[in-house]
Amino acid sequence: MEHTYYNPEDLKKFGNIGEWEKNLADKFFTWYGDVFKEGDLTAREKSLIALAVAHTIQCPYCIDAYTQDSLEKGATEKAMMEAIHVAAAIRGGASLVHGVMMMNKAKKLSM
């Protein structure tokens, strides 16, 4: 485990970032806590968004945390997979929509 960049144990140490910059860390964690509170979006919906984003940014810590959190919030496995498809669709779509740019350029350059 010591020869990999990611260690699951490090997730539990997230709070330690405050050791070297307490003021900013405190602000971040307070804001973070508020973000996930029930609002117009339910806590479960927020958890599913977080899960989808986690897959977009491919953060193992976030995938670990929000898989668990989504289950705790009562999300079905199907809903969790649907959320990831949304992320994947936007990701894939974002590449493809740039195809128009490519087409514009190609058409301009071509006779």
Binding site: E38, T42, A43, R44, Q68, L71, E72, K73, G74
Partner: peptide, 8 residues
Amino acid sequence: FLPGDQKG
């Protein structure tokens, strides 16, 4: 895993 918020 732990149970989520009872009300929710």
